[in-house]
């Protein structure tokens, strides 16, 4: 915001170029990989972006973000199963995730560091247990299948391509929201609070209030992502509230680059494409993905996008 005009314009042009390139890639993606996989990339990409609002910008590592992704997923599934339209189901899922995030956030943000991580994990596990037990609504271990996805504005949602492009619009809206939050007075202050909480308090800020607001926004966007996931697959199962999902989003974010806003989307793409390629080649997915992750943490601390950004900045 207060950078010198020359660097600012160059940065703006560079950013516009990157956005255009990314848009192009996302537009042709379902023609390069299976549309269902492409939609998964969008869903997990948005999930990781939402997660990074907490981690990269508020500085809080949540181990239980599947709680919001999963709550929304189940709500979306339930709404679709009860004949609701897709937009209503997506909205319902997002709002439910937000509502659940209020008490979870309120109780969690007062803790810092590892304690915050453990509390969020605990809440996610509680929701996981609830999903297992509440078989009337969630289908328990079997989950819910064969969800209807009534068409919209001439789009036929039994067609995976149509689903993808609709999801792309929703994904873009979600990303715009994330961008706005980060590049707002709130986002700027959030970073200040994260960098120096003592100084922030001594100029009149309440850190808890900022962390809670960030938490709620992150949860809502995670919910939107989770509802996209169910919309894409037409089924929901216990995996959506599983701790492995919480762990996966952490990994995707770190691989892509925390604090880079959209690096996590790249991270999601890498993890999902890698998994697809490895499964097809019958290679051990967990081992290879894990290895990639370890190497990234050791040598590409700032993730793929973060490292690239650093490289470009140094060249300027």
């Amino acid at each position: 915001m207060t950078a010198l005009p020359v660097t600012r314009d160059r940065a703006r042009r560079g950013a516009a170029l990157v956005v255009a390139a990314a848009a192009l890639i996302l537009l042709i993606l379902p023609h390069v990989v299976y549309p269902v996989l492409a939609l998964d990339i969008l869903a997990f990409g948005l999930f990781a972006v939402a997660f990074d609002l907490m981690f990269g910008f508020a500085g809080l590592l949540s181990f239980g973000h599947a709680a919001f992704w999963g709550t929304s997923a189940y709500t979306t599934a339930w709404l679709l199963g009860h004949g609701q339209s897709v937009p209503v189901a997506l909205l319902g899922g997002t709002l439910t995730a937000l509502v659940v995030a209020v008490p979870v956030g309120f109780l969690s943000v007062r803790s810092i560091g590892i304690y915050f991580s453990m509390i969020t994990l605990a809440f996610a596990q509680m929701l996981s247990f609830l999903a297992l037990q509440w078989t009337d609504v969630t289908g328990g271990e079997n989950g819910l299948q064969g969800l209807a996805r009534p068409g919209l504005l001439g789009l036929d949602f039994t067609n995976s391509m149509h689903r993808y492009y609709f999801a792309l619009v929703v994904f873009a809206l979600g990303c715009c929201a994330a961008y706005r939050v980060v590049r707002s007075p709130f986002g700027k202050t959030l970073v200040a609070v994260r960098d120096n909480e003592t100084r922030a308090r001594s100029v009149g800020y309440s850190p808890t209030r900022f962390k809670l607001t960030a938490f709620l926004i992150s949860a809502a966007l995670s919910g939107l992502a989770g509802s996209l996931f169910v919309f894409g697959h037409g089924v929901v199962s216990l995996e959506v509230v599983n701790w492995r999902t919480s762990g996966e989003v952490v990994m995707m974010t770190l691989l892509g680059g925390t604090g880079t806003l959209f690096g996590p989307v790249a991270g999601a793409a890498i993890v999902l494409l890698l998994r697809d390629v490895l499964t097809t080649a019958s290679l051990p997915v967990g081992v290879v993905t894990g290895l990639v992750f370890v190497l990234a943490v050791l040598f590409f601390r700032r993730g793929v996008v973060g490292t690239l950004q650093g490289f470009l900045k140094a060249r300027r």
């Binding site: 707002s184 007075p185 009149g204 209030r209 607001t213």
Partner: peptide, 15 residues
């Protein structure tokens, strides 16, 4: 800006 409503405004541009 800490005394203003601005820090809470996550929908407004940083400008």
């Amino acid at each position: 800006q800490s005394r203003s409503a601005l820090p809470g405004a996550f929908w407004r541009s940083e400008r």
